Simulated assay, not measured.
Amino acid sequence: MMRILLFLATNLAVVLIANITLSLFGFNGFMTTNGIDLNLDQLLIFCAVFGFAGSLISLFISKWMAKMSTNIQVINQPRTRHEQWLLQTAEQLSREAGIKMPEVGIFPAYEANAFATGWNKNDALVAVSQGMLERFSYDEVKAVLAHEIGHVANGDMVTLALVQGVVNTFVMFFARIVGNFVDKALFKNEEGHGIAYFAATVFAEVVLGFLASAITMWFSRRREFRADEVGACLAGTRAMVAALQHLRSEQGLPVSMPNSLIAFGINSGIKQGFTRIFMSHPPLEERIDALRQLDL
């Protein structure tokens, strides 16, 4: 979940800052036909350019953001047997997955946690928590690494960026339509865009962006199943299931990081309804059941 949250937060910040800056400098005038009415064709092009720019910038700085936010210690020269094994295992799994070996790191956290990020499959970062290394067996850690390398090999971050670019485009597009409606219909402003337009647009972008994140989360959940399949292929189905079961057994234990930073998929039970659509990972029970049905 960590890579998803970092990506979405960075993406939202980039888009909002770009929107506010462009509005302050009067670039919204290019999206009107007579200074008042919106030109929907130009508006859509404008939103697509800046919507995809936000997601691509987030993608390109994702590895840097992950390093800064989690205090990762990238392993360049292994100092312990754990680090030596981690590098060797990552190298083996990457070779079998057909990608260049990613940077490998360890971050200080008690809970079992791991994530992968990076702008392409040959320039990625894979990291595991210190707690996972201390409490999980080598086979289980290998399965977790294989899962994360599966994300890299499947190009999940790039695909996520493209999906988010589309989401950004339509969020910005409809937010400006809402802003224009509020400005003209409710505040009766007929002399160009007033303060109501800008305030309503920003508010609508935040609300629509939150609601539209359900699309990104749905995509993320689908990709988790695929990454589990890669993990099972590379490390063995039994090891992959064992890793997920170990994660499930540790649910509810005290942790040293906020729940919002849980990455590999620790979810408390099968959630339903409104909450479920905003989950970045499927419940562990569903993932275990899906793995048991694989014929590998």
Rank of each mutant, 00 (worst) to 15 (best):
G51R: 03
D37V: 14
Q73V: 11
L86R: 10
I72Y: 05
S55G: 06
L87G: 03
I45L: 07
Q77H: 11
F50A: 02
A53Y: 06
G54R: 04
R81Y: 04
M65G: 10
E83N: 05
N71V: 03
S69N: 12
L43D: 00
I36V: 14
G51C: 05
L87H: 04
L38R: 06
G35K: 06
G35P: 01
A53K: 07
Q73R: 15
Q73Y: 11
G35T: 03
L43T: 00
I45C: 01
Q77G: 04
M68E: 03
N71S: 14
D41E: 09
V49L: 03
F46G: 01
G54F: 02
A48E: 00
I36W: 10
F50Y: 14
V74H: 12
T70C: 13
L87Y: 05
G51W: 01
L56C: 08
L43Y: 01
S55N: 05
K67F: 11
R79Q: 12
W85Y: 10
L38C: 08
M68I: 10
L43G: 05
L56P: 06
W64C: 08
L59P: 02
L40E: 02
G54K: 04
L40G: 06
D41H: 14
P78I: 13
L43V: 01
M68F: 14
I72E: 01
D37S: 15
T80K: 12
L40F: 15
N34K: 07
I57R: 08
M68D: 01
N71D: 12
K63C: 03
Q42H: 13
N71K: 14
P78G: 10
T70K: 08
G35W: 03
R81Q: 06
I61Y: 10
N76I: 10
